[in-house]
Write a protein that binds this DNA or RNA. Structure first.
Lengths: 226, 226
DNA sequence: CGAATGCTTCGATTATGATCGAACTATGAA
DNA sequence: TTCATAGTTCGATCATAATCGAAGCATTCG
């Protein structure tokens, strides 16, 4: 009864609606200010401040001061992973907050999961990388193969600067709508950034939706089939 | 702000200490009665009853009546997966309830994660299955290969009866102490059962610890190296 | 400097829900 | 039938924490 990590504390942090909204908003991967998060969660600035400090002490979010603004973001991919897992469970146990609508369909097709691509497009990318042996999976470790390195570089991602970081290059993240993995880690992030840079898709500012242009979509298809 | 699944509700269910204790107790995979769970969580029977009904309505646990007893168990592997993910996050953000001790070491070595083997022994099994190509991983789908089928059958697992179920045969589950995957799904369950049947290891009744005998440990090693 | 903006702290209010005693129902045993 | 055990329901109590107004810092801008 008293062994192991204290899951109640962490779950309790997530379990308050206002805080859950804050965390969900941060799943877009963007750093947001206290005021923005307050608005997002539908609470006053004072209340938000209190919640934010709890989340910070709890290690779920990390602040960054910039002038008189204070930006918050999720403190690690782990947090995003737990949130996605919770969304999956909540969806499967039928605890949806709204009826499924067109917006929901868009979310399922392509969305942001803490800076990397999730949804159907995300899992397809991940699966293709494995099928074409651009990515190799040993146990739960993921590595770029030689051809994978070439592929990624050709796509325009600067691997050299990525490898500098301590953070793992490739990680997998379980997708709540697809029940499959998509690519996380710094490479996952770089992929999404590159897709945006190429103008293939745009992130919606308010939601987690990633909307591909028609051209972008077919370019993406070609990339996968190449 | 209102799209997507209601994670706050689910997280809130887990976020109450008494309920977290109940769920943790059920991570052993054993079905427990209301009274047992009350004792496990250190609360009265009335209080436990209230919590259990909330967890049941929330879809996290499933009851089974047997005479005048009511047995509860986790309602799915998904729930166990979320709990493990939470434990990982809690452990990494430093929210341990107790100092690490010998019991903790035993837990890290081998423990039960909702009826399948977790901890170091669990992840080693999983990795070996992949290395020796007994298990193949395509995207996030896992399949037994032909040689894998032979391997498992030789080990004494009755695959035929397992395949009958609708539930997926192989699944992966992220381990909180190892940060790697171990084998879940009905095959994972069968593996642990078989290990127990062979007398290689015993589950502790009260904790999640799986303690291997000396002989069992070396048999296990041999199985992996074979 | 003073004014404005972003955020935090304090304090009072309020709502929620965890808790358990007591009474009640259901199953099983004598 | 009567008694015992397992579990639920009801009701009262109590503690916690979410909320926001008001005041207080801190930073930037004019």
């Amino acid at each position: 009864m008293k062994e192991g990590p204290d899951i109640a504390h962490v779950a309790n942090l997530i379990g308050e609606p206002a805080r859950a909204n804050i965390l969900s908003a941060l799943m877009t991967g963007k750093a947001l200010t206290a005021s923005e998060l307050a608005q997002e969660a539908g609470i006053s600035l004072q209340t938000a401040s209190s919640h934010l400090s709890k989340l910070e002490v709890g290690g779920l979010i990390a602040p960054r001061k910039q002038g008189r603004h204070k930006y918050f973001s999720l403190s690690s991919d782990d947090v995003a992973h737990v949130l996605e897992a919770l969304m999956g469970l909540a969806a499967r146990t039928g605890h949806l907050r709204t009826r499924t609508g067109p917006r929901d369909a868009a979310l399922r097709e392509a969305r942001v999961c803490y800076n990397h691509l999730a949804g159907e497009m995300g899992t397809r990318l991940f699966d293709t990388l494995l099928e074409r042996k651009l990515l190799s999976q040993q146990g739960s470790d993921l590595h770029l193969t030689q051809s994978g390195t070439r592929f990624v570089t050709d796509f325009g991602v600067d691997l050299v600067s990525l490898r500098d970081h301590k953070a793992p290059l490739c990680k997998e993240c379980l997708d709540w709508s697809e029940r499959r993995s998509h690519l996380a880690g710094s490479l996952g992030r770089a992929f999404l950034t590159r897709i945006e840079t190429l103008g293939w898709a745009k992130r919606d500012r308010k939601t987690r939706i990633v909307s591909f242009t028609r051209q972008g979509r077919s370019s993406f298809e070609r990339l996968l089939e190449d």
